[in-house]
C-alpha cells in the first residue's frame, strides 16, 4: 500500500494555517469586545468633578469609614469584592482537587533549634499585626485581604520552620475549611441582612453605625472585613499546605 507522502505535509501546513486563522479571529473578536467595553466607560472629568469627587466628598458621610478605599471596596463596590472572594474560592477548590493526594502530609523535622525559638517569640506579634490590619481596616490602611494574607503567612511559617505535621496538628485542614466557609457565609449573611433591613443586597447596615473613628463604627464594614480576612487567610493557607505535601523533606 502506498503512503501518500506528498500530501501529509500539506495537510499539516493547512492545519497550522487554520489554527493560526482561528486564533487571529478569536483575538480580534476579544480585542473588539474589549474596545467596546472601554468605549462604554465614562471619560475622565478631572479631580474636582465626577465620581471620584463624589466619593471624596461624601464617602465619610455615607459609610462612616475613614479609609475611603475600604469604603469603596466593601460598601460602594461590595458586590465586586464578593466576586473576588468567589474567584479565590474557585482557585482554592481547583488546587486542592488537583494537588492533594492524601490527608496526612510527609512530615519534616523543620529547621534548627535557634530558628524555632526565635519564631516562637515573633509569631504572636505577626498574628497580632494581622488581626490589627483586619479589624482596623476602616480606620487605617489595610483591610480584610491584606490582613488575611498576613495570617496565611503564619501557616507558611509553621509549615516550613516547625514541619508540616505541626501545622497539621495546630490548624488541621478541616479547621481551615471551616474558617474559609465561615468567612464566606459571614459575607453572604451580611448581604442578605442588607436586603431585609435596608432593601438592597450588601447595603450598609445603618443601625450598626457609631461615632466616627471608633473601632466598631462604619456599619457592616468591620464585620465584612473580618469575614473576608479569615476567608482569604484560610484559603491561601490551604493552597500552600496542599502544595508542600511532598517537599521540604530534608532537615536543613
Amino acid at each position: 500500500m502506498e503512503i501518500p507522502t506528498e500530501t501529509q505535509p500539506e495537510v499539516e501546513s493547512l492545519n497550522k494555517l487554520m489554527k493560526k486563522t482561528l486564533i487571529s479571529v478569536v483575538l480580534a473578536g476579544v480585542a473588539f469586545a474589549l474596545y467596546q467595553n472601554f468605549s462604554l466607560m465614562p471619560g475622565y472629568e478631572g479631580l474636582n468633578v465626577g465620581l471620584s469627587n463624589y466619593i471624596i466628598e461624601s464617602g465619610l458621610k455615607d459609610t462612616g469609614s475613614l479609609n475611603l478605599i475600604t469604603a469603596v471596596l466593601y460598601d460602594y463596590r461590595a458586590f465586586d469584592s464578593l466576586g473576588e472572594s468567589t474567584v479565590i474560592f474557585g482557585a482554592v477548590s481547583g488546587i486542592v482537587l488537583i494537588l492533594s493526594r492524601k490527608m496526612l502530609p510527609v512530615s519534616s523535622k523543620g529547621l534548627s533549634f535557634i530558628v524555632k525559638r526565635t519564631l516562637g517569640i515573633m509569631t504572636p506579634f505577626i498574628a497580632l499585626f494581622g488581626l490589627y490590619v483586619i479589624t482596623h481596616g476602616h480606620l487605617t490602611p489595610g483591610g480584610g485581604f491584606q490582613g488575611g494574607v498576613i495570617l496565611a503567612a503564619i501557616s507558611i511559617i509553621f509549615s516550613i520552620v516547625y514541619g508540616s505535621a505541626f501545622d497539621y496538628r495546630r490548624y488541621s485542614p478541616q479547621t481551615k475549611t471551616a474558617l474559609e466557609t465561615g468567612g464566606a457565609l459571614t459575607f453572604l449573611g451580611l448581604g442578605l441582612a442588607g436586603i431585609f433591613m435596608e432593601g438592597a443586597f450588601l447595603h450598609n447596615l445603618g443601625f450598626l453605625t457609631a461615632e466616627t473613628g471608633t473601632l466598631i463604627s462604619a456599619g457592616s464594614i468591620p464585620y465584612i472585613n473580618i469575614g473576608v480576612g479569615f476567608k482569604v487567610g484560610a484559603g491561601l493557607a490551604i493552597i500552600f499546605y496542599s502544595m508542600i505535601q511532598k517537599t521540604f523533606e530534608e532537615d536543613f
Binding site: 490590619v133 490602611p141 491584606q146 494574607v149 496565611a152 503567612a153 507558611i156 500552600f240
Partner: peptide
C-alpha cells in the same frame, strides 16, 4: 503598597 508587599514579596 501593603497588599503588594504582603502578596508579591511574601506569599
Amino acid at each position: 503598597a501593603l497588599a503588594e508587599a504582603v502578596i508579591g514579596a511574601g506569599l
